[in-house]
Design a protein around this nucleic acid. Structure first.
Length: 570
RNA sequence: GGGCCUGUAGCUCAGUUGGUUAGAGCAGAGCGCUCAUAACGCUUUUGUCGUAGGUUCGAGUCCUACCGGGCCUACCA
């Protein structure tokens, strides 16, 4: 039994996430967490909302509520949606928590002690109308290069040229449209990542088997141009972790906060402390996951994220932890995902394009989404959501292959033997053959789950479901019954045990259906089939069951067309 | 501009360190079964593995060039 720490990238607070966000971190991390728990490992699975930064302030302003209130509300919304998708976090925290504030300030202090923080004076654009400093991207104007009038301060979207805000002609605030902008001198703290480049480089090199996507992005940042650059870790904002050096004031930094990207990953740790607090546990209970001097040496730590998050998780956050000089647990494996596209285009929060988590749950139960998203996860490249593919996938895999198998077995049994596992006959060569085939495929399934190749694992799981139908077709208990009810009984008994097995194996992907299956066969506590022969005779003759309702109703063509039209976008 | 990834059956993808007749699911065709959500099972068609060269006894797998698709490029998170 191992101890496995799992974190999912923190969803940003400013609204409900779409399915692309979901499949990029939370969903795969949940499947992995569920699998590892099922295998008997001790798991700590952490997520939280990422609440700081300009977009949160603006979203709150738009909603007409104070930002703290806005975040509290949205945290609840996101937490409820996470539960709706059956994301089994041990704790769902908030980056605005007291724990994170203190830990962020603490780590900044340690980094300063280690000489890894530098004060830099720089010029920032201030908008008087908005009464705030504007991030580059919130300044718009005319592109000096191509003349587009909607260029942003960081880049012109029309000609893709990189810009500085001061390059723009007729700059204006993207928030208010105000042209009352001025350049002000302001001081900020920089994390001296450049000083840790070699250490980070060696650390990355020492990692075995990381996805290509992960290491190639990290290497690019480490070696591009002059190499890893220092990074500003403070901002002139109201909403965030106030800049302090440990518990002390930081002279010159009054009124400033840490940059969200500095405090957000720290929340992985802080949220584990929040978990301890919420459960009345002491500090040692969370430190044993995070401090190598306090028991975390044997922890295996896996992070899940979209590819946009990779630089922060491979470089900035490790630099923060390493640089602190304290023995914090560093990540052991980073699983990164590509994008999910929607009908060939981008999911877009701002344009409202695609399917959002709340809408998805209004349409169909979470298992449908979980199955399609995980079995089509963008693991090796971007993948594309289409309603046609979704309909085909869930109807075929869930309704026909799995759902119908459960249905045909339980209904046949009920009509011939009643709602209990029938007695009589014995397993023979056919059952031994199927058991051997399943054992073989189960090993592959387990290997793929272990390696977090979820798309492949889903295919393995499906193949194991198919074996049930193949078996039934060959064994044909409906024919055998006419000559020998005893022999038919053995077949049905074996098939009912297959159903129980499927309930156990399917739980990481479709937890609700898995539970419904196990409840139907009256085997809620069923554990992982470490011994397959044993597992396939776990339900003894006479064991009562109930014939379940249709596990997965099909998505009709009419309904699919309706949904396609509904989500066609504006 | 620079860097990275990618192009394999109609569709979505798998193809270990280069090694005999290139695989899966879906879709299509045929047959079978009738327990079941008209579900299931079996059989089966289709590929110049983006293009052109090169290395090799041998390349989907390595190299080069070109063509197509995508991503990143550090102040959105």
């Amino acid at each position: 039994m191992a101890r496995i720490l799992i974190t999912s990238a923190l969803p940003y607070i400013n609204g409900i996430k779409h399915l692309g966000n979901l499949v990029g971190s939370q969903l795969p991390s949940d499947a992995y967490a569920r699998y590892m728990r099922a295998r008997g490992h001790e798991v700590m699975f952490i997520c939280a909302t990422d609440e700081h930064g300009t977009p949160a302030e603006l979203a709150a302003g738009k909603a007409g509520v104070p930002v703290a209130e806005y975040c509290a509300d949205m945290w609840q919304v996101q937490k409820d949606l996470a539960e709706g998708f059956r994301l089994s976090f041990d704790f769902f925290g908030r980056s605005s928590s007291k724990r994170n504030r203190e830990l962020t300030q603490h780590l900044a202090g340690k980094l300063a002690d280690a000489g890894l923080i530098e004060e830099v004076s720089e010029k920032q654009v201030y908008s008087r109308a908005d009464a705030r400093y504007l991030p580059d991207r919130y300044i718009e104007g005319t592109c000096p290069n191509c003349g587009s009038e909607n260029a942003r301060g960081d880049q012109c979207e029309n000609c893709t040229k990189q810009l500085n805000p001061t390059d723009l002609i007729n700059p204006r605030s993207a928030i208010s449209g105000s042209t009352e902008l001025e350049v002000r001198e302001t001081k900020h703290l920089y994390l001296r990542q450049s000083a840790m480049r070699e250490r980070l480089d060696k650390w990355i090199d020492s990692q075995k088997g990381w996805p290509l996507l992960t290491t190639s992005i990290a290497k690019k940042w480490l070696h591009d141009g002059d190499g890893l650059r220092d990074r500003g870790i403070t901002r002139d904002l109201d909403w965030g972790v106030p800049v302090k050096r440990g518990s002390e004031e930081w002279p010159g930094m009054e009124g400033k906060v840490f940059y969200v990207w500095f405090d957000a990953p720290i929340e992985y740790i802080a949220a584990t402390a929040e978990w301890a607090d919420a459960n009345g546990q002491d500090d040692a209970s969370w430190q044993r996951w995070w401090r190598e001097d306090k028991g975390a040496l044997d922890v295996h730590y896996v992070q899940f994220m979209g590819k946009d998050n990779v630089p922060f998780h491979t470089l900035s956050f490790p630099a923060t932890l390493m640089g602190s000089g304290e023995p914090w647990k560093l990540v052991d494996f980073i699983k990164s995902y590509n994008w999910l596209t929607y009908e060939g285009g981008k999911f877009s929060t701002s344009a409202g394009r695609g399917i959002f988590m709340d809408q998805a749950l209004d349409i169909l139960p979470s298992d449908y989404w979980r199955w399609w998203l995980l079995s089509n996860a963008p693991e090796s490249s971007d993948s594309n959501f289409t309603w046609e593919s979704f309909q085909g996938g869930v109807n075929k895999d869930l309704a026909d292959v799995l759902g119908n198998f459960v249905s045909r077995v339980t209904k046949f049994c009920r009509s011939k033997f009643g709602e209990q596992v029938p007695e009589g006959g014995e397993y023979g060569a056919a059952e031994a053959k199927v058991t051997a085939e399943i054992a073989k495929r189960l090993t592959i399934y387990q290997d793929n789950m272990q390696a977090i190749e979820l798309r492949k694992a889903a295919a393995d799981l499906r193949a194991i479901w198919v074996m049930g139908n193949e078996y039934l077709q060959t064994a044909a208990p409906w024919s055998i019954y006419k000559q020998s009810p005893e022999d038919a009984a053995a077949i049905v008994r074996f098939a009912l045990n297959l159903i129980r097995l499927y309930g156990v194996l399917s739980a990481p992907f479709i937890p609700d259906a898995a539970k419904a299956i196990l409840t139907a066969v009256n085997a809620e506590g069923a554990g992982w089939p470490d011994d397959l022969d044993l597992a396939l005779s776990a339900l003894p003759p006479g064991h009562a069951f109930t014939t379940p309702d249709v596990l997965f109703a099909k998505l009709s063509d009419e309904r699919r067309e309706e949904l396609e039209a509904q989500f066609a976008g504006e």
